[in-house]
C-alpha cells in the first residue's frame, strides 16, 4: 500500500516537472534497444495494411524534423546542401487530405441522404478536423514513429501524419484499401457524437419556414403544450410546433422562448431523419463499401430542401 502511494507521489511530481518544462520525457528512440525497422513492420502488421516501405518512412517525417536536420548539417559543415536529402510528409499529407475529403463527403451523403448539403459539409469538416484525426493517429500508435522536433508531437503533427498514411495507401495504388481504412478508423469517430450538435443551425425558425414554404405548407404555429411549476425557479415549458393542425415537433425548456427554439430544432431533426429514433449510422460490419462506390452528387441545399425532392432523388439513384 505505502509502495503504491509512493509510486503515485513520484508520478505526480514527475508530471508537474514535465508540465513546467523542467524535465523532458525521454524519447523511446533514445533507448539502446530501439529498432525503427521492426517497429515500422509491427505498425503495418498491427493495422493489417500493406504500406509501401519507402513511402511510409516519408509519411512519418515532419517538416520541423527536416529543418532541424538541415540546421545540424549546416553547423557541422558536412558538404553541400544538395547531398542532404530528407523529404517531409507535406506532399503525402496533401494527397491524403484530398482523398479523405472526397471519401468522407461521398460517405456522409450516402449515410445521411436527408441531410442538407450544409450539414454534410459540417460533418465532413468535423471528421477532417485536426482534433479528431490527431486522436486516431495517436491511438493507432504513431507517437514513437514520428520524426518531429517536439516530443511528444503536437496535435497538427499527429493529424498530418495520419493524412500522410492515407496518402501512402493512395499513392501505392490501393484506393479501395484506403477507403476501407477511412471507413474503419475515421467514420467511427461519429459514434457517441450528437450529430445535430456538430451542424449548428443558426436560425432554426427561419430554416423551418423556408422548408415549409418549399413544401407548400402553411406557416408553423407554436403552441404551449403544458407548463409545470410556472411560479418557481424550476419552471418547465413544453412547446409544440403545429403545421396544418399537425404536431411536427416538440421541446422542453426553462422559458417559453427556449422551449420554442428546441421544438423547432426537434421538428427539423425529424425532417432530416436524425432524431432519437434514427437508424444506426452505417459503420463496421453494417457498412457496405460498394454502396458508396459511385460518387453521388451533392445533397440539396437547405434553402431548396423539401422531402418530396429528396425522395425523388433517392429513387433515381
Amino acid at each position: 500500500m505505502s509502495k503504491e502511494l509512493f509510486k503515485r507521489r513520484v508520478q505526480i511530481r514527475t508530471d508537474e516537472l514535465i508540465r513546467h518544462g523542467r524535465e523532458q520525457i525521454p524519447r523511446r528512440s533514445d533507448f539502446l534497444e530501439w529498432n525503427y525497422d521492426s517497429e515500422l513492420y509491427a505498425f503495418s502488421v498491427r493495422l493489417g495494411e500493406n504500406f509501401d516501405d519507402s513511402k511510409i518512412r516519408e509519411a512519418f517525417v515532419d517538416q520541423s524534423h527536416v529543418e532541424m536536420e538541415a540546421e545540424r548539417h549546416r553547423a557541422l559543415e558536412m558538404g553541400s546542401e544538395d547531398e542532404f536529402a530528407i523529404t517531409s510528409n507535406d506532399r503525402l499529407a496533401e494527397v491524403g487530405s484530398t482523398f479523405l475529403s472526397e471519401t468522407l463527403e461521398s460517405y456522409v451523403r450516402v449515410a445521411f441522404p436527408f441531410w442538407p448539403e450544409e450539414g454534410v459539409q459540417a460533418l465532413v469538416a468535423f471528421l477532417n478536423s485536426n482534433e479528431v484525426q490527431a486522436e486516431i493517429s495517436f491511438h493507432i500508435g504513431t507517437r514513437d514513429l514520428i520524426f518531429a522536433k517536439d516530443y511528444p508531437p503536437d496535435m497538427p503533427t499527429y493529424a498530418k501524419v495520419f493524412r500522410a498514411l492515407v496518402g501512402v495507401l493512395v499513392e501505392s495504388g490501393h484506393e479501395d484499401q484506403a477507403k476501407r481504412f477511412i471507413y474503419d478508423l475515421v467514420v467511427p469517430q461519429l459514434h457517441v457524437q450528437d450529430i445535430n450538435e456538430i451542424w449548428d443551425i443558426k436560425d432554426p425558425m427561419r430554416l423551418l419556414m423556408t422548408i415549409l414554404k418549399n413544401e407548400g405548407k402553411s406557416e408553423p404555429e407554436s403552441r404551449l403544450l403544458w407548463v409545470s411549476g410556472l411560479d418557481t425557479i424550476m419552471a418547465c415549458y413544453h412547446v409544440g410546433i403545429y403545421v396544418d393542425k399537425e404536431l411536427i415537433g416538440q421541446g422542453p425548456g426553462e422559458s417559453a422562448e427556449i422551449a420554442e427554439e428546441m421544438a423547432t430544432r426537434d421538428a427539423l431533426r425529424r425532417m432530416f431523419r436524425s432524431d432519437e429514433s434514427m437508424p444506426m449510422i452505417p459503420m463496421g460490419d453494417y457498412l457496405d463499401p460498394n454502396q458508396i462506390k459511385a460518387g453521388p452528387k451533392a445533397n440539396l441545399s437547405a434553402s431548396e430542401w423539401s422531402q418530396e425532392k429528396v425522395l425523388k432523388n433517392l429513387q433515381t439513384i
Binding site: D194, N196, E197, C236, G251, P252, G253, E254, I258, A259, M262, R265, D266
Partner: peptide, 9 residues
C-alpha cells in the same frame, strides 16, 4: 448538447 440539456431540465 442542446437537446440533452433541455431533456435533463
Amino acid at each position: 448538447s442542446k437537446f440533452q440539456r433541455v431533456q435533463q431540465w
